[in-house]
Design a protein around this nucleic acid. Structure first.
Lengths: 354, 354
DNA sequence: AGGCCGAGTGGGAGCGCTCCCACACAGGCT
DNA sequence: AGCCTGTGTGGGAGCGCTCCCACTCGGCCT
């Protein structure tokens, strides 16, 4: 078992052969009695190989346990067979909790049948953003998935100018040139507000997300549409500005109560904000849903654990991850093609808060 | 801008030069008026370079925007400069929600100053496990971080036999040969139970995690120790078996109530189970904490949102991630050295449920 | 009969780097 | 003067693969 003797043995020593030397294409070719080219063709699924040669090669591969060396392949093809999932760190926590894992889970599921490997890159500050830029410029990935897009985020523009295949979760605006996948935010918001109207709510307030994010703006837009289609006025005094955080929800709720004490419902653009709002409502002696109905957005874990359990708009996050990966693979496969853009349906999950 | 003409242009076309050709070592050498070797030495920080040559090379690198080609480097060194974070999919959701993101966040933070890239590998079933084995055998990563270790998990054994540097989050048992990082599960459990004892609780029950996980066993062990050091008996009828899920917590709580209706406290090995337990208690007409005090484990988001907010044992998850990455880098840097094993302190966060 | 095709094949060249050997050259010793 | 250091340097070899050119060899055409 090649145990090392002497605890503090010299530095560079010890690097020794971990496991036996891996077989190369050449060795497979020798064993199969064919040339390197033929083995390569078999491995890469070229049709121009005789049945006989193919069998011999496959047998040799199996016998030697041959696995192609990715680095060698990358060196010549300059494909890397890996894609990066880029996540601005600030968002990690902020997002409704399972968001992050669910996106990853979807992406990974879609990649599972592929040779593609998934690189995770968290970007926490300016310096790391610059490192990322260098990284991408060096073409170390075949494509990029970018989560959480703010309107002034420089990353999408970078991806665009580098012409790296990429898909966003979100978009900068209506006319996003890059490929993206989003949930039907406006539609979800409309459903929520219609639900409140149907319940007989009259003064329906909303707490928005950060309005430099298209998703937050779309949710606000849906709120407004639902009111207008019901012939209700859109009242500025019923709109509270939040930032997707619980504390933001608390602050906005307090302000709303002060400004418009007569409100009888709140549609919040995130569950976390809704949870904060519910705390403030309770502290103010208002009962949910009797005095004030509350609806959140995301249908995250917290929604199931507030008191009362929260009605919320669900977005198919894992499906978003899958779709992102699928679009990206397509784009990598046929570059130059127009970017695809997908909107996935949302769904209202009714619990007890509205 | 090299726009492509003709929408549906033929398949293999369009792969054209995305961005200008990247400069190579050779070009840098030419521009700096030195040999390839010298540039390589500068790039890799070898001390055996004159100040003058170094400056010339650095200037050339800056001018050309040179970034070393990783594949070429890997091909000759057979280092990959990447490590894999392996996560059994089943766990993704199960874990107290921010767990996953926090581990990643910690790992990534520790890697940020490094050349290392982070590969994320979710393993969802037997087939993917086998693919992973092939993957690791092909030595495509320099090291592995493995999250969530069950006693009979074949992965650690695989890592061991492959002699790949690796660090576990968790361990299989006391005598884990691989490197690992864990929280002081027993200590945390002791603190929780002591807190309950101090509060005057008399019949303290516990709901365990799946006992094929060392962490769950350790928490049960801590529960028992705290009782025994206080001279209280360890009563089997006060131990409910859970599985870390909310539903598991509900089931265990119902059983406990039936078996031992006199209980006045429950220490749960996870917040999710505690949340489930609290629902059952309320449904049974028992008030928390007046009739039954409840303590969870993890201090996850749900803990802050239960009614009443939950007292819970916090583990420093991000710190665990950082530590794992650090240990792994050390192990990669000096292989053959003994595996390091770290236990991080836990902390009792007191809220209203106990 | 001669010619021409296309299918199948072998193997050279080369991707961009690191490793290491050979060498130049300044300084300090006998 | 001659020698031996030690420091700094250039560049050949080669990592394992894909790409592509050149070749063979049947079968089909005129």
């Amino acid at each position: 078992m090649a145990r090392m003797v002497g605890g503090q043995a010299g530095g560079p020593a010890g690097g020794a052969a971990r496991g036996a030397a891996r077989p190369t294409l050449e060795e497979v070719a020798a064993l199969a009695g064919v040339g390197r080219g033929t083995v390569s063709r078999v491995v890469n699924g070229s049709p121009r190989v005789s049945e006989k040669a193919k069998e011999a090669v496959l047998a040799a591969i199996a016998e030697l346990g041959y696995v192609p060396n990715r680095a060698a392949r990358t060196l010549v093809t300059s494909r890397t067979d890996s894609i990066a999932l880029v996540v601005p760190e600030a968002e990690t926590r902020l997002f409704s909790e399972p968001y992050f894992s669910d996106i990853i889970s979807g992406v990974s599921a879609e990649l599972a049948e592929t040779e593609m490997q998934l690189l995770l890159i968290l970007v926490r500050n300016r310096r790391e953003r610059e490192r990322l830029a260098a990284y991408l410029t060096a073409q170390r990935v075949d494509g990029v998935l970018l989560v959480s897009v703010h309107r002034d985020d420089p990353l999408p523009a970078l991806l665009e100018s580098l012409e790296i295949p990429s898909v966003l979760a979100g978009r900068r605006g209506d006319a996003e040139p890059l490929g993206y996948v989003i949930a039907d935010n406006a539609g979800g918001a409309r459903m929520a507000v219609r639900h409140l109207l149907r319940r007989g709510c009259d003064a329906i307030a909303t707490i928005t997300g950060p309005l430099d994010m298209e998703g937050a703006r779309a949710r606000l837009g849906g709120y407004r549409q639902a009111l207008e289609e019901a012939g209700r006025p859109y009242r500025e005094d019923l709109v509270g500005l939040g930032d997707f955080t619980e504390e933001g929800g608390r602050l906005a709720m307090r302000e709303l109560l002060e400004r418009s004490p007569g409100l009888d419902a709140v549609f919040c653009a995130s569950d976390l904000m809704a949870a904060g709002a519910m705390q403030v409502l309770r502290a103010a002696g208002r009962w949910v849903p009797q005095d004030v109905a509350v609806i959140g957005f995301d249908d995250s874990v917290v929604a199931r654990h507030t008191e009362p359990p929260m009605t919320s708009v669900r977005q198919p996050i894992e499906e978003m991850g899958r779709t992102m990966a699928r679009l990206l693979l397509e784009e990598i496969g046929s570059p130059g093609r127009a970017h695809r853009q997908v909107v996935l349906a949302t769904e209202l999950v009714v619990r007890d808060s509205a």
